[in-house]
Structure formats: structure tokens, C-alpha cells
């Protein structure tokens, strides 16, 4: 079943600001990343999916339902984690999530059980009886996720779930989302302005910019393993680059990383019974060992998704001037 399908979806605020324009996209179940700069229309897209906003033009279908017509049915099967603060500071997480579960129609006892279970799944244990006002940002994000998850939705809409988190918190949140998508079997649409972040966990990616579709594809197409090894050493990167170049490997430098293309299988130096990959690994390891460098990392590199937007990489990775006009209107 198709998770989300839109047809020429358009949303304008007043006559001036266009949040979404002629967006046609189909999303299959799984973990889907919705990427775009701030103001690209991500939040508007989510709100239309929830039936909270009416599109100005075009159509949308979520879980096979039209959110403008069957909004209540859609909202019963969807969980929503907003970008902004949405927690009452003077309630405990347990009470709040229980209340939200009841607001999704779960009977009283079930609501309480599922609330504590869900809070446990997102990593809140004894803290759940404390007032939310005293929580750290990371814990608040977990409560926000728990309230979206507590009624066991078929689809989770997460708007910038890693906002305000430190790197460790980001990793934990992303791991959690990945678990929800894979172990829990719930489809997730996760919004982010950080491509590098969602590409790690997503099955598919939709990139929008200025309300228009930039690209939509299954990530497996995008991040096929390439024949490049990346090497990271904590010191002596230049020496290693020189040594590898001398060994006949065309090394490329990418910040602290060295990118080494796998040897051509037909070229000289690749012995029988040895794959070109093994041989390349050997060469690198030998070089590192001989120079006695502290090796940090040596792995086969995936295509970075950014490279998919290589036509104009600044559009996705950098701040987009055209998109910021929307900030206030979202």
C-alpha cells in the first residue's frame, strides 16, 4: 500500500507566500526522510497530511485516505511529533502521555499501561514520574516522541526530531527512530534540514526546496556501495597520502579523510585468488603499519546522498535564501 501520495499539491498562505507548489510525490512504507532547508515546506507538508491545513490546490492521500475529507480517521492512525515545544511543564511525563493516549481513544487502563510502556521504549524510566518542566531537551524530545507513539499509529510524522540535541542525543534519537521503523514496524516520515542525518536511517528520501520536489527516490538506489575506501588516521594524513600514491593508488583528500578507489581488478599487482578489494585493503593497511600511524577508520564508503544533488549541492546542504521567506508563515 502506498503510504503517502500527493498530486500537484499546492499551499499558499494568503496570496504572497507559497509553501508548497505543484508537489507530486509517492512514498512507500518504511522510514522516509523529508529533507529541505528551513522554510522549504516540510512542516506545511506534514500539517496537510494530518488534515490540519487544507491544501490550496491538488490532492493528498495518507494511508489511502484523503486528509481533507477523512481527517479524523487519518489522525486516529497517525502520530505527530511537532517541531516546537508542546509539553505542559507542570505534568509528569507519565500523566501527560496517558492523557494523550486517551485523547486517541485508548481506554483508561490501556492508556496508562501503554503510556509507561512507550516511555520505557523511548528510554524514560523512573524519570517519567517527574514534572516535564525539569527535563533536559533530550528527555523532552523523547516524551514528544512517546506521545506520538503511544496509540500505536500506522504512520509517524516527525518534524525535526533531533532539533536542539547534542551529537550523542542525535545519535540516540536517530537510532530510536530506526528501531521504530524496523523493529516496531511503524512507517515513519522524518523531516530534517540535515541530509547527512536522515540518510543514515532512511529507506527513501524526498527532497523539497521552496515547496517544489527536488528529488524522490529509494535510498538503496542512492547509496549503493561504491568502490571507494575511506581511511582516517588521527595524524600523518599527508604522509599516508604520499605513501599510497607511491603505491599506485590514486588517493583523494576529503577533509580528514583519504578516499582510495579500489584497484582495477585487471591492473597489475592483483594476484590470483585475491579480490581487488582485499588487495586494496592490504595496501592501505601495509602503508599505515609501515608509517606506524594511529588508524581511526577504514571502511567501504557509501555514496553520500549529497552527491545526488550534485547539480547544485549548495541548494541542499547550505542555507537556502529562497526558502527562508517562509519561516514566519509556517
Amino acid at each position: 500500500m502506498t503510504l503517502i501520495a500527493t498530486q500537484s499539491l499546492t499551499k499558499t498562505y494568503g496570496n504572497r507566500v507559497t509553501a508548497l507548489s505543484d508537489l507530486t510525490v509517492t512514498v512507500e512504507p518504511g522510514i522516509v526522510g523529508l529533507v529541505g532547508a528551513n522554510g522549504a515546506g516540510k512542516s506545511t507538508f506534514i500539517k496537510i497530511m494530518l488534515g490540519l491545513l487544507e491544501p490550496t490546490g491538488g490532492q493528498a492521500r495518507v494511508l489511502g485516505l484523503d486528509p481533507t475529507v477523512d481527517g479524523h480517521q487519518v489522525r486516529a492512525r497517525v502520530g505527530y511529533m511537532p517541531e516546537h515545544d508542546c509539553l505542559p511543564p507542570d505534568l509528569s511525563a507519565a500523566e501527560f502521555v496517558t492523557h494523550m493516549a486517551r485523547m486517541s481513544g485508548l481506554p483508561k487502563t490501556t492508556a496508562r499501561e501503554r503510556a509507561s510502556e512507550t516511555l520505557r521504549h523511548v528510554g524514560l524510566y523512573e524519570e517519567r514520574y517527574r514534572q516535564v518542566g525539569g527535563y533536559s531537551t533530550g528527555m523532552k524530545q523523547r516524551v514528544k516522541l512517546a506521545q506520538a507513539l503511544v496509540h500505536d499509529p500506522d504512520l509517524l510524522l516527525l518534524d525535526e526530531p533531533t532539533n536542539g540535541l547534542d551529537p550523542a542525543g542525535r545519535d540516540a534519537m536517530l537510532a530510536l527512530i530506526e528501531r521504530i521503523g524496523t523493529e516496531f514496524g511503524i512507517s515513519v516520515l522524518v523531516c530534517s534540514h540535515l541530509l547527512g542525518e536522515v540518510e543514515r536511517i532512511c529507506d527513501a528520501l524526498v527532497a523539497i526546496e521552496g515547496g517544489k520536489l527536488l528529488r524522490s527516490a529509494q535510498l538503496s538506489d542512492m547509496t549503493a556501495v561504491t568502490e571507494v575506501l575511506s581511511v582516517e588516521v588521527s595524524e600523518g594524513t599527508d604522509e599516508l597520502a604520499a605513501r599510497l600514491a607511491a603505491a599506485g593508488l590514486p588517493v583523494r583528500r576529503d577533509n580528514r579523510l583519504l578516499l582510495v578507489p579500489v584497484l582495477d581488478p585487471d591492473s597489475a599487482g592483483v594476484g590470483a585468488g585475491d579480490t581487488a578489494l582485499d588487495k586494496t585493503y592490504d595496501l592501505i593497511l601495509t602503508a599505515v603499519a609501515e608509517l606506524d600511524l594511529p588508524l581511526h577508520r577504514l571502511d567501504q564508503r557509501r555514496h553520500r546522498v549529497v552527491e545526488l544533488f550534485a547539480t547544485d549541492p549548495a541548494r541542499v546542504s547550505g542555507p537556502v535564501a529562497a526558502g527562508t521567506a517562509l519561516e514566519g508563515a509556517r
Binding site: 489522525r75 486516529a76 511537532p82 516546537h84 508542546c86 509539553l87 505542559p88 511543564p89 485523547m103 486517541s104
Partner: peptide
Amino acid sequence: RDLHSGVLPLYFARPL
């Protein structure tokens, strides 16, 4: 209170 804490969108994102 619901306006200030931002809880309102959570209510309206549910079948209420």
C-alpha cells in the same frame, strides 16, 4: 495554558 505550552496542536493532531 494549552496555547502557551503548545499542546493544542497535539490535541488537533488526534481524532478530537
